[in-house]
């Protein structure tokens, strides 16, 4: 479900960096506003191609609210382009192409329980869907947020998680892979949380995002609880160059992650999901 196409989807639109927030040692959130004109609309789950002048372009999910005037992007410093973007300061210019891709099923999930399962940076692409569901809370059954991180120090959006926890109509469980004795919360993997949290597996939508291995284990745990494959949604990632289905790089089996994804219904990719090097 892509948004309306730009005049030239290959040419970056110029944006200005607004607020910059260092989330973690290697992760930064930037607010981007168009130099001219309004920001295009987007659906939760979609991504933009962010262009650092002269360096290159990478695909980053949009992780802000739909009604904000700017795009919000959380970027982890893992390479030349992400490092350049993470170093930008307020007032800098950045190129943006998008939004592209498919979105989380926040409308289809109305009337059912919603399980958000995030691992690490995977919470960023899920956050707009969480915002949407919380802003329309009465339309959904139980809302559960499960989040796994490496350790308590590297927990993304920690303050926001604590705010969500204060709501009486949301269940949140966070866990870390390991911790020291100062941490009084869960230690263990996200799939282990699924077995212990209250939701109706026969009337739930599960929205999952995180490293692919974590998603594989999570899907196993969800299906073991009885969640059906056509109600499990994942956000996939592959090498992207054009983001519009013409360069061929993002292919995952027959699927183009840029236009048939990144949000994919699990049953559509179940056969190839656990195969190596597809």
């Amino acid at each position: 479900m892509a948004a309306a196409p730009y005049p030239d989807p290959l040419a970056p639109q110029l944006y200005r960096v607004g607020r910059v927030r260092r989330e973690l040692a290697d992760t930064t959130t930037l607010e981007l506003a168009p130099v001219t004109g309004p920001r295009p609309t987007f659906e939760p789950g979609q991504f933009n191609m962010l262009y650092a002048f002269g360096v290159g372009e990478i695909a980053i999910s949009i992780s802000g609210a739909a009604d904000a005037a700017h795009f919000v992007h959380t970027v982890r410093n893992v390479g030349a382009v992400s490092a350049a973007i993470a170093k930008l300061e307020a007032g800098a210019t950045i190129g943006v192409r998008g939004p592209f891709g498919t979105s989380w099923p926040v409308v289809a999930a109305q009337g059912a329980d919603v399980l958000f399962v995030a691992g690490g940076l995977g919470l960023a692409p899920l956050r707009p869907a969480i915002y949407h569901v919380l802003a329309n809370r009465p339309r959904y059954g139980r809302v559960v947020i499960l989040f796994g991180s490496r350790n308590p120090k590297d927990m993304l959006y920690r303050r926001e998680l604590e705010q969500w926890r204060q709501r009486l109509d949301v269940d949140i469980e966070v866990t870390v892979d390991h911790a020291d004795a100062d941490w009084h919360g869960n230690v263990g993997v996200v799939p282990a949380l699924i077995r212990r949290v209250a939701f109706d597996p026969h009337d739930s939508f599960a929205l999952v995002c995180g490293p692919e291995v974590m998603m594989r284990f999570t899907v196993s745990a969800l299906r073991a609880e009885g969640v059906v494959s056509d109600r499990i949604y994942l956000s996939m990632e592959r090498n992207m160059k054009c983001a519009i289905g013409l360069c061929g790089h993002c292919q995952f089996g027959p699927v183009f992650v840029c236009k048939d994804g990144p949000v994919m219904r699990f049953d559509k990719i179940a056969e190839i999901f656990a195969m190596r090097e597809i």
Binding site: L10, F53, G54, V55, E57, K241, C242, L246, C247, G248
Partner: peptide
């Protein structure tokens, strides 16, 4: 076969950039 890649080039002064497919 139709696959392409893009390359981002810039000049030494960093004031101009080009994208080539």
């Amino acid at each position: 076969c139709f696959c392409t890649t893009v390359e981002d080039h810039s000049d030494l002064s960093g004031t101009s950039a080009e994208r080539v497919r």
